[in-house]
Each structure stands twice: as C-alpha cells, then as structure tokens.
Amino acid sequence: MDFFRGRRIKMKSARYYREKYLRNLPTKFCPGCGNGTVLNCFVRAIDDLKIDLDKLLCVSGIGCSAWIPSPFINSDTLHVTHGRAIAFATGAKLANNKLEVVVFTGDGDGAGIGGNHLIHAARRNINLTVILINNLIYAMTGGQVAPTTPANMRTSTTPYGNPEYMFDLCKLVSAAGATYVARTTTLHPLEIISFVKEAIRNRGFSFVEVISQCPTEFGRKNKLDLKQTINYIREITTRKEEEGKLRLGIIHKGERKEFTERIKETGGAAVAES
C-alpha cells in the first residue's frame, strides 16, 4: 500500500467506526473484494467531516458496489434501479437541500446504463458526491464486459478478448462540467479518504472514481489471482500523462455555480417546501 509509506496515520478503533456508522449486518462481498476498502474509507471520511448521519442520504443503484451503503451504512439509504441512482439523488437533493447526498455506483451502473445521468448531473453541477467503484467489469451478473473493461481483456461475453476500448470516466465527467473530479484505487485508502472528504466539501458535482479489484469475476476470467489482479490495477494506472492508462490524482477542479444557486439566481426556489 504505497500511500501509507512514510505517513503517520491517526485512526480511531475499528469498533468505534463500526458501532457509530454501520448497521450490525453481515456484508456479502467476496474475500479480497475492493468494496470493503471503499466502505471502510468512506466511514472514516464522514467521521473526519463530522457528518450528521441523520442528514446523510446514500443512494445506490444495482451491482456489487451498490451494496456498499445498503444496508450497511446507518444513515438514510435509497437503493434504486440499475443505473438510475444519480437521477433519484437529484430529486431528493432538489426536494431537500439540507440532505448530504452521496451516490455509490459501479462502472456498469454509473457509466454504462446510467451514463446519461452522470453526464447531465455533472453538467448541472448539482451538489452531489458520486463515488464510482470501477472494477472493470459487470461483477454482480457474472463478469460480463463493461464500458470500462480494458481492450483485449477476457470477460464472460468477450471470450476472445475485448474488442472495445475502455472508457476514461474522469475525462468525461470533467468535460461535462463537474467541479471536483479525482481518481484513485483501493491500493490507496488514505487517498480515497482525502478525495471523498474534498468531494463532499465541494459545493457542486463531485466525482471520485476508485479503481477496485474484483478477484472473483475480473480476476478469474483473466486467470489472475488476487495479488495479480491488484498488480494489474497498478499496470493500467499512472500518475503521469500516459496514453492508454488511467491517470490517478485530482483530475479536475472547476469554478461554476452550483445548480440550486443557479435556480435561485434565475428566480426559482432552491428547496421545495410542502
């Protein structure tokens, strides 16, 4: 875990986080899955930010990654249809602007079937935080190819190798108008924490992509064990500009007014009142 190197970390006990932030329910993730790391880091981020759990709404779609908040995080959760989490979140946020709304989505969920909602939420710059767990595959349904699967990789629907190119989602979301865009991996938990914190603090559309390992589907289909799957993530990511690789770090910060501010500016009401 390169990010830990040379850093002193102050963390509270695991029990503290568990009792304060999680419901007492067993998680369903496979051994070695990256989703647990994201859950762990998210809880630490909201603890650092002292987020009031009564005002936190976690929205997720369908897929393994959608199970990160639901039913584990002890806040309001809205577990919706495949790909539509951002659209549901948009409605909830516009109806009650006091809610802190965080969307958990997978690469298939957020960038395949739900890609249009991602683009338009970024364009509106609505104050949502989207955490997209990119495990390079449709995991929950048995390892089919995703828009994020790297070229030539094997999946259950690309038995001869993937003929398509992988999607750079941070570029897409930056171009669409998001005001905070960052990418890291499950190998960098401290970076996940700090990016999630910055994303939540940003008043506007924030996007944190976490490249994550799925040993069960992505690993097995490509004859990679857990360690090799993790190494593969190292291979396809970079800290520099490198063609064909996914750049890690803060990708984009923008200055645009947030959607509800714009609604107010143009004569509308920011929050619906019934």
């Binding site: 919706v80 659209a87 948009t90 409605g91 909830a92 946020k93 109806a95 009650n96 338009h120 619906a272």
Partner: peptide
C-alpha cells in the same frame, strides 16, 4: 427514466411530486 427517478427521490425527501 430520470424524471420518474427524480420524482420518487423527491417524494422520499418529503415533497409531493
């Protein structure tokens, strides 16, 4: 699709939609 989703999200946030 998004419209129906937003309507449901707003309803759970307490607003008739």
């Amino acid at each position: 699709i998004a419209s129906m989703a937003a309507v449901i999200g707003a309803s759970w946030a307490g607003v008739k939609s």
